[in-house]
Design a protein around this nucleic acid. Sequence first.
DNA 1: GCGCGAGTCAACCATCAGGTTGAAAGTGCA
DNA 2: TGCACTTTCAACCTGATGGTTGACTCGCGC
Lengths: 121, 121
Amino acid sequence: MTADGLSRVFAALADPTRRDMVARLAGGDATVNQLAEPYTMSLQAVYKHLKVLEEAGLVSRPPGPQPRSVRLELDVFDAVGGWIEQYRRRAEARYQRLDAVLAAMRDKDEARDQERKGHQR
Amino acid sequence: MTADGLSRVFAALADPTRRDMVARLAGGDATVNQLAEPYTMSLQAVYKHLKVLEEAGLVSRPPGPQPRSVRLELDVFDAVGGWIEQYRRRAEARYQRLDAVLAAMRDKDEARDQERKGHQR
DNA sequence: GCGCGAGTCAACCATCAGGTTGAAAGTGCA
DNA sequence: TGCACTTTCAACCTGATGGTTGACTCGCGC
């Protein structure tokens, strides 16, 4: 992945609303209206977020019948994960505690719930 | 990690200059001046970037003698890595190709070189 | 105690990002 | 055809971000 691509992905994931969208899309495809449902913002704002995610390659909108579906593109997470991984490995080597990783992954669900509430800017 | 913390980390990593700093700090601690050396921007601008990294918890500045050192804080990468990991696992399960991960990690060095050149906004 | 270099703070400027509203295309169906 | 719904585009506002310059503080060697 190019440096510019990495920047776009990180920038896209820096917004809580967009991370929430990603999390929800991981559970399955959705239409824009379904995606927009939990938020108080306008539909156009949701489209803007979607465009950012799409330009970062995190999401795709396969052509189809009118309520087009939004799909999570998982490939990009490999690239970003690889970038993170090199530093994470150092951390693991340094502190010899793999359990922190597992704890972090166990915490992700409640972190996501917290985040769902704070989606408005 | 709180949702707000995640946002700060991703936002911090969205900037190529800051990712470059992180990459260089992974090779060892440095002073602000050493960090600023490769860039054409002012020292104050570098200091600002450093502050962003510090507020995201990616970097610490242990008190010490006058040329203070900047140190990479690796713990945060665990948390972020954990967040990414859940989607990465889906990708791996879906496509059954772990090799893509390794390829991505092999590419990171040249990607970083590319990035070093394009650090100005 | 003085001076110098490293580090920091503050004010300012330009651009970007997230949101709004309004209007205009597309698309599908009765 | 016509209508309703989805999607997109454009203009605008506000706050955050990345950069600048200038001034100020902090340690340390002499």
